[in-house]
Design a protein around this nucleic acid. Structure first.
Lengths: 143, 143
DNA sequence: GTAATTGCAAAGCTTTTGCAATTTA
DNA sequence: TAAATTGCAAAAGCTTTGCAATTAC
């Protein structure tokens, strides 16, 4: 038996506050995301872990739950490459750099992009936003 | 009748030089890419234009042609968002910033990323590579 | 009770693949 | 002629959707 994570209640309260309902599926999905944080899980991986405790939760429910929770601002998805989207709890904003060779993911603090963001804003009126797509390149090992 | 583009022969020579064969489909695909450069076309758009002159070229042939020509270094594909990949001739390296609101694409010179690349290299041994995924954000109009 | 959520099955959309037939060099 | 390329049809992989049944509030 896994000890209940008090952070789960905080997340659920945010769902309630937005008029969302609390279901077993939502508890399970958020629970998995809390337990695996700060990993980035594909929907498949997520569903697998959810099903370990709730074999009845359908894959389409996982997709819809993720959509709803993302809409509510609780989580985010990122594209790391030519692969399925990955999900993680929304917390400290960060970027990702993926190695084209081995797939390793490096997490980068957002402030690394401050200069770039400033120039995009000044030169193009463009506001750099979500850290939605990873940078591509080569890690030290694969170089 | 469209005047033949002399640049096409240059590209075809590069294909030959690598042992590739010249077919009507390859002429057509490269021709469209030359004619639309520097636009970024989805495979669907590309195939549509190819079929205007060669109704017999199958979509799967377009995919295979793009793979082969990309392999040969003649072209590149970029992901601009939750949309099909887009293709363009490989020329001056550049990055892309897409507006989450209207989908507008801003082309950014590669040297905008020089500082970032330097820090990634120094701090993580990571070599920033292909400009494969667009940045996400908001353009001036949509802000 | 009412609206939100779910399960299921089916479909959607982009991309890939097997294979025989055709074409290039 | 040998190897590369194509057409076609089928399938694969990820994600979305319609709808009736269930569940939360």
């Amino acid at each position: 038996m896994v000890a209940p994570d008090p952070r789960l209640e905080v997340l659920l309260d945010r769902v309630r506050a937005q008029g969302g309902r609390i279901t077993a599926a939502r508890r399970a999905v958020l629970g998995v995301l809390l337990a695996t944080h700060p990993e980035h899980l594909t929907v498949e991986e997520l569903a697998g872990r959810v099903r370990a405790g709730h074999p009845d939760v359908h894959l389409s429910t996982v997709y819809r739950t993720l959509d709803a929770m993302e809409e509510a601002g609780l989580l985010t998805h990122v594209h790391l490459g030519h692969t399925p989207s990955t999900y993680h709890l929304a917390d400290v904003p960060h970027h990702h750099a993926v190695c084209d060779g081995c797939g390793a993911v490096i997490h980068l603090p957002a402030d690394l992009f401050d200069d770039l963001a400033r120039r995009l804003s000044a030169d193009h009126g463009y506001t750099l936003g979500a850290h939605h797509f990873a940078l591509a390149g080569r890690c030290a090992d694969c170089r």
